[in-house]
């Protein structure tokens, strides 16, 4: 039973490839939902497996065995496996907890500063303008949802392009995309295999908003131009800042522009299969971690003398 718990720890490594294919073949909004939900499930299962390993290791210690009212020694797989697994899990959970707390604090602070900044000035409709030459724009969730745009951004776009930008940000707010981004961030911290999936979710969020904006303004080309010009203006204002993006890969912005300039694709034949595979991954994770935990619980009850040996 204990070995079953390895499956939810290994499965996340299969997620990035599946997530990328899902985003290529499904409509962005659908891909966003399927990938985020399955990633969340897989992340939770891997945490559960780590927790079960830690408990198994702890109950091997006389002190915790006494606390757990174990009358017989706990029957587990070989100590050669259980002890290193428990030690590893303690370390992994500690690192995970630490990074989650640190990231949550930073995110909360950034969100607080952005909200305070937008709150101290009057808004026109849902638009909050910040007088700054640096082109920047983002959706600010809250009550009510707002879109924050700098004057630098407004001045680098034409009137039609500004409408596309607003439609894009409104799509973020209407779709509750900040939840997806927060989940992507958390899942990426829970398991190193899910780190690339976080990138896919971030990209899917932008693609979904791009498509919604293109539908709202009724012009894919115009939306593509708005994104492209905004990015170029932002880069010009930044000056020659060293970029951490690998030069070999094309960054997210050109990919978004290219996707909008291309004709909208009909749904891919393999689309249901990819979605099915992601759901299957999540299901296998749930089943194996549940079986592992139930088996472990059963062994504990036996060791507590509640059931016949």
């Amino acid at each position: 039973m204990t070995f079953l718990l390895i499956v939810p720890l290994v499965l996340p490594f299969a997620m990035p490839a599946l997530a990328r294919r899902a985003l290529e073949r499904l409509a962005p909004a659908t891909a966003l939902w399927v990938v985020t939900c399955s990633t969340l499930v897989v992340a939770c299962c891997s945490l559960t497996a780590l927790g079960a390993f830690v408990l198994t290791g702890l109950l091997k210690l006389p002190l915790f065995a006494a606390l757990g009212k174990l009358v017989y020694p706990l029957r587990t797989a070989s100590d050669l496996f259980v002890v290193p697994a428990a030690a590893f899990s303690v370390g992994a959970l500690a690192v995970c907890l630490w990074t989650v707390i640190r990231t949550a604090t930073r995110q909360a602070r950034a969100f607080h500063v952005a909200t305070a900044e937008a709150g101290c000035r009057a808004t026109a409709g849902d638009l909050c303008v910040i007088d700054s030459p640096r082109p920047d724009a983002y959706a600010l969730p809250g009550r009510p949802h707002r879109i924050v745009v700098t004057t630098g951004m407004l001045r680098s776009l034409g009137p039609d392009e500004r409408e596309a930008l607003f439609a894009h940000e409104r799509a973020h707010n209407a779709g509750g995309h900040h939840y997806f981004l927060a989940f992507a961030e958390l899942a990426a911290l829970c398991h190193p295999g899910l780190r690339p999936v976080g990138e896919v979710i971030r990209f899917a969020v932008e693609r979904a908003a791009d498509e919604a904006a293109a539908a709202a303004v009724g012009d894919r080309r115009l939306t593509a131009r708005a994104i492209g010009r905004a990015a170029l203006a932002a880069r010009a204002a930044h000056g020659e800042r060293p970029s951490f993006a690998a030069a070999a890969t094309t960054g997210p912005v050109p990919q978004r522009v290219a996707a909008l300039l291309a004709a909208p694709r009909p749904p891919h034949r393999a689309a249901p299969w990819i979605a099915g595979l992601l759901v299957a991954c999540a299901t296998v994770s749930v089943c194996t971690s549940a079986t592992g935990v139930i088996g472990f619980h059963h062994e504990v009850e036996i060791a507590q003398g509640e059931e016949g040996r």
Binding site: Q107, A110, F111, A114, P135, D136, A137, Y138, A139, L140, P141, M153, L165, H168, E169, H172, H177, H178, L181, A182, E185, G198, R202, V205, E206, A209, I227, G228, A230, A231, L232, A234, R235, H238, R241, S243, A245, A246, A247, T250, G251, P252, V253, P254, V257
Partner: peptide
């Protein structure tokens, strides 16, 4: 990476050319 979905990410030099 913040929960604030920003309109444009930073561009690398290659990105700029492709764009």
């Amino acid at each position: 990476h913040t929960v604030l979905a920003r309109f444009v990410a930073q561009l690398s030099e290659d990105d700029e050319r492709v764009l």
